[in-house]
């Protein structure tokens, strides 16, 4: 959600030209979503050079600011300085100021979620969010919805399994029908990846398997990987 800041009384809004006023009003009307310069030109019908000059002037006066759109890195969006960019522009809380996904932080949060789910044995998203909040490892509080996104990523990674509580046994502390999560494998098992039959033989991971033919340049009889593999 975009938040409106208190207007700065020192802003020289009176010193704006007519074109600057038109552009400023348009930018302000878009609130936190902001507007792309090309859309601005189309909506105001002002010549390109006037728009560019006015934008530069408004930026100089600190009345507007430019933000990189996370979905279209080449497009600068302008918004009034009293607004904060909306998640549609910045990509939300998981993106940094340059519009890049903050993978490091996401991984840290995933580890935290996994740790708390493992400690709790079975937990709902609210329980995980609460546990993280109580641990005070994060600078700011994250809502259950935000933690839910991280937990769902863990489900997709198969680190966590999603279950519906039936209110009995290990689900006794969770209301019936609530979605809850538990670790899909023990701590020791989690360190080792699941190994399929193909992983244990050279052909399974060979990048040149498509070119391998008996009697060819790459062949089972001349394969170096197999020579090493069968070296007892």
């Amino acid at each position: 959600m975009s938040k409106r800041k208190r207007p700065d009384s020192n802003v020289p809004s009176q010193s704006m030209t007519d074109q600057e006023k038109i552009l400023y009003n348009l930018i302000q009307s878009k609130q936190g979503l902001g507007i792309w310069s090309r859309d601005m030109k189309r909506e105001t019908n002002l010549p390109d050079n006037v728009v560019d000059k006015s934008l530069k002037s408004l930026l100089g006066k600190g009345l507007i600011k430019d933000v990189v759109n996370v979905q279209f890195k080449g497009r600068k969006h302008y918004l009034a300085s009293e607004f904060e960019p909306s998640p549609e522009i910045t990509g939300g809380k998981w993106y940094d100021d340059q519009g890049r996904l903050d993978s490091e932080f996401i991984n840290f949060l995933k580890d935290q979620c996994l740790k708390h789910i493992r400690n709790l044995k079975i937990a709902t998203v609210d329980m995980v969010a609460d546990a993280i909040q109580r641990s005070r490892v994060l600078k700011r509080d994250y809502s259950s919805q935000e933690i839910g996104e991280i937990v769902r990523a863990l489900v997709l990674d198969d680190h966590v399994i999603e279950m519906r509580s039936n209110g009995v046994g290990e689900f006794a502390s969770i209301p019936t029908g609530r979605m809850c999560y538990k670790c899909s494998r023990s701590l020791d098992a989690a360190k080792e990846p699941r190994v399929g039959a193909m992983a244990s033989i050279p052909c399974g991971v060979c990048p040149r398997i498509a070119h391998c033919t008996p009697g060819g340049i790459i062949s089972p009889t001349t394969c170096e990987y197999y020579t090493k593999w069968l070296d007892f």
């Binding site: 990846p193 699941r194 190994v195 399929g196 193909m198 992983a199 399974g204 991971v205």
Partner: peptide
């Protein structure tokens, strides 16, 4: 499950995650 085992042995994360999505 078997397919994921084969996939996980050939490409690391995030490939299995993408495939599940």
């Amino acid at each position: 499950e078997e397919l994921f085992k084969v996939l996980e042995s050939r490409i690391p994360q995030p490939a299995p995650r993408i495939l599940r999505i």
